[in-house]
Design a protein around this nucleic acid. Structure first.
Length: 269
DNA sequence: ATGGTTGCACGGCAA
């Protein structure tokens, strides 16, 4: 596999923000962009806009109006058979192969507001999704080959992945049942948390800031919801560039009508 | 303690 830069971005409507992706791509020059929350069907995806920005290859798994994931690439891309990991069969997951590397692109359910699966079916769905994901990834742990798992996992697992660990312990995305599940899943699948290996705690690392703050940068109530995990075959490639190989493109959060997530890039050398 | 904003699609839900 050659040197590659991988990007992941919850774009919150790809049709609305294709111009912002073009601007980001011109700055960051990623070879592959993994998108979540494209919020459209396959045939509504702006293929021509991506081809014009240098990404003629695309794999899209969409549904009407919500969720949806896509991978666009400079290099030829092969869509692989997705395994069933979403209990409700929503468009939240895809598998593709680029240059010998398998990419698993995920949009894990947010889970609603009430952190009790008995009274909140959305949280129940999130926990069921996580269970299915653990079983699936554990079963593939020892498969040879280069694999990355990326996307909006809607969980900030570590203390310094949120603006206030204490204040968020009962807030969905940072409850112990979720953070423990995510770490268990990552380890069961044989993946390393590459961004955190490059930017260790206690440094804060966020990729999402709510729309509901007047000044997101000033209040800085962020969370690290977007992740890039690499398996053993890619660990050295992810670490070789040091922390310069990892970047959260916070400037994109400042653009006019931004996504509430910032893109993350990781260089694999 | 509460409400704060956005996108889809055109009412209210999900985030």
């Amino acid at each position: 596999m050659r040197a590659l830069t991988l990007a992941t971005w919850n774009i919150n409507s790809v049709r609305l923000r294709a111009p912002q992706i073009a601007r980001f791509a011109a700055d960051a020059r990623p070879d592959i962009i993994c998108l979540q929350e494209i919020k459209c069907l396959e045939d509504q995806f702006p293929y021509a806009a991506f081809a014009a920005m240098g990404y003629p290859h695309a794999a899209v798994t969409g549904q009407k109006g919500m969720h949806g994931v896509a991978v666009v690439s400079r290099l030829p891309l092969e869509a692989l058979e997705p395994h069933k990991v979403c209990p409700k069969a929503e468009a939240r997951y895809q598998r593709v192969k680029v240059d010998g590397m398998e990419i698993l692109n995920f949009y894990i359910p947010a889970g609603g507001d009430e952190p009790d699966p008995v009274i909140n079916p959305r949280f129940r769905h999130k926990l069921d999704f996580l269970d299915a994901l653990e079983t699936y990834l554990a079963g593939r742990r020892d498969e040879p080959g280069a694999r990355v798992l990326v996307g909006d996992l809607n969980i900030a697992p570590l203390e310094h992945d949120v603006w206030s660990h204490k204040q968020l312990l009962k807030v969905i995305s940072h409850t112990p049942v979720e953070t423990e599940a995510l770490e268990r899943i990552r380890i069961a699948g044989g993946f390393a948390d590459a961004p955190r290996a490059l930017v260790p705690e206690p440094e804060k690392l966020f990729t999402w800031w709510s729309y509901r703050n007047r000044d997101w940068r000033k209040s800085n109530r962020g969370r690290r919801l977007d992740h890039i995990w690499v398996n053993g075959a890619l660990e050295a490639a992810a670490m070789s560039g040091g922390r310069a190989g990892l970047r959260v493109w916070e400037d994109c959060r400042d653009w006019d009508k931004p996504s509430d997530h910032a893109p993350v890039t990781l260089a694999l050398r």
